[in-house]
Amino acid sequence: MIPAPLPTVVNGQRRGSSRALARRSAAVLTPRLTEAETSLLPITPGVLNTPRHFHVSSVVNRQSITRHGLDWTRMGAARGITGSRRPEVEGIFVCRDEDVSFFLQINNTGGPVDGWAVDDVDGASLLDNGNGFFHLSERIPAARIRLVRSDVPAQ
């Protein structure tokens, strides 16, 4: 039996399940890979059926991410996507392309966000935080990421 998705709670308000929220906004907010991009990337078994993963972060972090990559120890210039002031885990949250819209929707950073493509994610390295969200316990160098959506306004 597959458990029902947990309701999403943002600022104390119930927003429905993460899957339902992602489906409602996917067509508008999800950055999709072009056929050319997809054909150039190897598909690794166990990487949640996608050649690339994504990370959503405040635009305030853009310069640091471009220079240093994704590194939770550098968090502090802006709140996390859920509004946290400190890392929720010692790692970097990533998601599949169909889940990007969910993270854009729950944006609680206080401003616009960017979407970053993350290459070469080993599916065996993904850790579940206990709520169905996945993170990597390693820093992701700038060479493995690319800005794919910028300045997405808070919903």
Rank of each mutant, 00 (worst) to 15 (best):
M1S: 14
P3V: 04
P3T: 10
P5L: 06
T8S: 12
V9D: 06
G12D: 04
R14M: 14
R15V: 07
S18A: 15
R19E: 15
R19S: 14
A22Y: 00
R23S: 13
R24F: 03
R24E: 07
S25Y: 15
L29D: 12
T30E: 15
P31S: 13
R32P: 01
L33T: 08
L33N: 07
E35Q: 13
E35W: 11
A36H: 10
A36G: 02
T38I: 10
L40R: 15
T44W: 08
T50C: 08
P51S: 10
H53G: 02
F54K: 04
H55D: 04
S57K: 00
V60M: 12
N61V: 04
R62H: 07
Q63G: 02
S64T: 15
I65H: 08
I65M: 03
T66V: 12
T66S: 12
R67H: 13
R67N: 11
H68F: 09
H68Y: 05
G69D: 01
W72I: 00
W72M: 08
T73P: 03
R74E: 01
M75C: 14
A77L: 14
G80S: 12
I81D: 02
T82W: 13
R85M: 09
R86P: 00
R86C: 05
P87M: 04
G91F: 05
D97S: 13
E98W: 02
D99E: 11
D99F: 11
V100G: 03
F102I: 03
F102D: 04
L104G: 01
I106T: 08
T109R: 00
T109H: 02
G110W: 04
D119P: 00
D120K: 03
G123V: 07
L127S: 02
N129G: 01
G130Q: 01
G132R: 07
G132S: 06
G132I: 06
G132Q: 06
F133E: 09
H135T: 05
L136A: 02
L136T: 00
A142F: 05
A142P: 09
R144L: 14
R144T: 04
V148C: 15
R149K: 15
D151E: 14
V152Q: 14
P153C: 06
